[in-house]
Design a protein around this nucleic acid. Sequence first.
DNA 1: ATGTCCGTAACCTACGGA
Length: 252
Amino acid sequence: MRIATWNVNSIGARLPRLLDWLEQRSPDAVALQETKCTDGAFPYADLSRLGYEALHVGDGRWNGVAVLSKVGLEPLATELPGHPEPRFARARCGPLSVTSVYVPNGRSLDDPHYLYKLDWLATLRRTLDEQDPADPIAVMGDFNVALTDADVWNIKAFAGSTHVTPAERQGVQHLLDWGLTDVRARPGKGDHPFTYWDYRAGMFHKDFGMRIDYVLTSRTVEVGDAYVDREARKGKGPSDHAPVLVEVSIEG
DNA sequence: ATGTCCGTAACCTACGGA
């Protein structure tokens, strides 16, 4: 089974690229983030033509997440308790529970949104208790956290910034401690498996990126090849994030 | 690093968010 996560930065703006990518890579289950569309505008029909069922939560302007599957899809949850923004969707895709998350950005350390981000991560951790870490689980998406200093292009540029603070890293670490493994993807190029590059200042071409999109899997998910699909970040009209693709097989 | 891109509201430009 091939699974993937991708922050598409608007499914409307990215639809032709998304459909091409789905045809080329043919993932069985996909977590999307930042669809930025209402349920009414979600392209269910286009996806269905490629064999995908979809669970989408979105209210239009910001956020929005989806789970796509061509191995069956049973919706399990569409909201993180106490946090109604459309940033969380979970569905059963064949043998695998797939959760798509779009963790709040945090904006800046003195912004209330930063505390919201920490609370969101803590709530996500508590919500894991609805599941059993011995079951096949993938939690994937845009976590807006770089787990180590090596997960940003230059840690010195992040002094006083969000995404690299101990509190944010702890928030993600607690998810791992529950029983999830951070799948280390091969980089698409260079030494670092970055998944995000700012649109500005030629950051992508300089490979000044960040690893902030993760695929987290439980122990009954056997992980094969995993890579950052850097090709999807190239060319005209890309998202600012690249997808992460992972080959998995389910034990038992 | 602050060089771009997204959607929206309200109008062909400015703004919030990332």
